[in-house]
Write a protein that binds this DNA or RNA. Sequence first.
RNA 1: GCGCCCUUCGUCUAUCGGUUAGGACGACAGCCUUUCACGUUGUAAAGACGGGUUCGACUCCCGUAGGGCGCGCCA
Length: 360
Amino acid sequence: MQTPVVTRFAPSPTGFLHIGGGRTALFNWLYAKRHGGKMLLRIEDTDRERSTTNAIEAIIDGLKWLGLSWDGEPIYQFARAARHAEVARDLVVKGHAYYCYATPEELTEMRERLKADGKPMRYDGRWRDRDPSTAPEGVKPVIRLRAPIEGETVVEDQVQGKVTWANKELDDLVLLRSDGTPTYMLAVVVDDHDMGVTHIIRGDDHLTNGARQSQIYQACGWNVPVMAHIPLIHGPDGAKLSKRHGALGVEAYRAMGYLPAALRNYLVRLGWSHGDQEIFSTEEMSQLFDLKNVGRSAARFDFAKLSNLNGLYMRQADDEALLAALEDMLPHVEGGADFARALDNAGRKRLLAMMPGLKE
RNA sequence: GCGCCCUUCGUCUAUCGGUUAGGACGACAGCCUUUCACGUUGUAAAGACGGGUUCGACUCCCGUAGGGCGCGCCA
C-alpha cells in the first residue's frame, strides 16, 4: 500500500504572502490534489522578534484569496518548542549532538578570521570532542549536530535531480539555542516528521538546507521525505524579486484588480509546463500538475503576460461572477470603498447590464 | 573566498541524438472598427562561448563566461 501524499506550505510570518510563496503554496496544493493527498499549513513563527499576528492574518487571507485551502488547523511552530528541545537533548544522549560553549562573539571572530584567510566560513568543531567539564563559567551552551565528517550527503531531488555534497563541506549546525529554543533547521525536521509530511516542495533557496536537514533526519533515525526544490521567481530584470519591482505580496495583485484564477494560471506556468498548453482551469491543473515537468531555472515575472491572461479570464467570466469579483475587490483598492458605498441595487443592475461591453 | 544550482526568440516555455527548433505574451505590419479595446491575418525574433563523444548534437561529457542560492544562537 502506498502512503498517502502529505505536502505542506510553511511560511514565516514576517511580512505578507510573497508572490513566490503563493506559487510554492499553489504547487503544494496542486500536488496534493493530484495525488488525492493533503496539504498542511505550518506557520514558522520561531523568530519571536519578527513574527507578527498581522503577518499571520495576511498570509491566511492571501491564501484564501488565491483560492488555496489546507487540511486541518494551521500548525504554529513556536507552540511545539518543547518537543523540539526534547529531540535535541535526546540527540545529545545518543551521541549525535553535543553542547557547544563558544560565545557568539567568539564565533564572529572565528568567521572573520576564516574570511580574511580566504577559508570557507564553517564552524570549526571546537567543542565537538572537547570535555564539557572544561566549559567556561556562566556560558549557556547551544546544542550542535554532530554531522558526519567523511562521506557525502545526497539529496534525490524531484526537480533538481541528484545533488551531492561532500560532508566536509557541511558544518555542525546549531539545533538548540542557548536559551533553549529550537533553530529553524531542527524545528522544520521535527515538525515535518511529526506531521507525517511525505513531500517537501519549496523554493530552491532551500536546497542546501535540504542536505543539512537530511543529516538531521539521519541522526534521528527517520526517513527523509521526498524533496522538490522549485526555481525562484525573479523580477523582470533578472534580479531577485524585491520591493523595487513593485508588487511583492499577493494582496497587491488583488488591489490591482487581477482575478485569482488568472493569477493561478499565470503562476502555474512559471516553471511548469504541459506541452504547449497555456490556459488551465483550476480543475485541469490539479489533474495535470506533476513535478517531472517543473523546470530548473529561475523565471522572470512578466506583468504583460499576467495582464493578458487576466483580460482573457475577464472576458470569459460570467457577468454576475465578474460583478461579484468586482465588489469583492473594491474594499482593497484605493478609492474603492467610496465606490462600494455608492453602489446600490440600481447601480448594481446597471453595472450588470453594461458588463458584456465592459469586460471586452 | 568555499559549496551547490541554472543558461533555447525581449519574456514564459516545447523539444526527452536526426524537426524548416514549435507555441504563448510582447513587438511590428495589415484587416475589422466612428475612437479605444476585442477579434483576426501575417512578419521579425532563440539554442551564452569553446572543446570533445557521435555518422549526426539544443539535447550527452569537460571547460570558460554570466546569473542565482547557500555558508547566522534568521527563517
